[in-house]
């Protein structure tokens, strides 16, 4: 996740822990053979700043694996520029709530496989509610209702994020993952709460096509020192082909 051009890991979408220079991190992921990398810039989402096309081009130039980008995408032209800078997919979030017509145009122009929708939700009084603007704004729409709208847009992939669990490493919201994956046909990438390799397997069993793992890959030991790595290589072998690295 980018903030002020630097790489951070969030906790519950608010506290941000500095990880390092994104270009150096990308080189580490090259070495670690990450099979896909997703980059999210929170500044355009939260503070409305511009998409940093130049930085994205630099990152893509250093990357030897497929890439996706999310953060502040509003127009068909934004998507075109990002794809031409060397990214394979774009991740949409707030725009899906604000302007479904433009999302339809993006799908028409670039194909379903290129367009990913990220849905952030929080549990409020037992209800799963969808949040946009980097977790700042409550849409007051229930997750499953929102999902129906997203389904009609024919996007290629859904990233599901439990804000409450982000960065907590306390286990995934399996019930919601199960409900969401059975409601739609496109792949669901579940995020939030992975603290253990068992959580990844549990996410897959609940129906996720991929599990976003972040803290587990960037922090090491009880004091959470920053060290970008896969956990024990022997154990990760079984999950690595299916787990995305999302920082």
């Amino acid at each position: 996740m980018l903030h002020s051009g630097q790489l951070y890991k969030s906790v519950q979408f608010s506290t941000n822990i500095y990880i390092g220079d994104p270009l150096i991190a990308v080189k580490i992921f090259n070495e670690k053979l990450a099979e896909e990398l997703s980059i999210v810039d929170i500044d355009p989402c939260k503070y409305g700043s511009e998409i940093q096309f130049e930085l994205l081009e630099q990152i893509a130039g250093e990357c030897f694996m497929p890439l996706s980008y999310g953060g502040g995408i509003k127009t068909v032209e934004d998507v075109r520029k990002i794809l031409y800078s060397g990214f394979e997919k774009v991740v949409l979030n707030s725009i899906v709530f604000k302007n479904q017509e433009v999302v339809r145009q993006m799908v028409d122009e670039f194909g379903s496989s290129t367009i990913v929708v990220s849905i952030d939700y929080k549990t409020i009084n037992g209800m799963k509610q969808v949040f946009v603007d980097g977790g700042k704004t409550n849409t007051n729409i229930e997750l499953m209702d929102y999902l129906q709208t997203v389904k009609s847009l024919q996007v290629g992939e859904i990233i599901l994020k439990a804000i409450d669990l982000d960065g907590t490493m306390s286990g995934m919201d399996l019930e919601t993952i199960q409900k969401v994956s059975s409601a739609i046909q496109v792949p669901v990438i579940a995020n939030g709460g992975v603290g253990h390799l068992n959580d990844i397997s549990a996410g897959f069993s609940a129906g996720a096509s991929a599990v976003g793992v972040s803290s587990l890959f960037v922090f090491k030991g009880p004091l959470k020192a920053v060290l970008i790595n896969y956990p024990d290589p022997q154990v990760t072998k079984q999950v690595r082909n299916r787990s995305h690295v999302i920082v």
Binding site: C63, F64, G86
Partner: peptide, 14 residues
Amino acid sequence: CGNVGSVQNMFSKI
């Protein structure tokens, strides 16, 4: 027609 940075970087890497 697209970013050629990663092609060049890959050659330099090898």
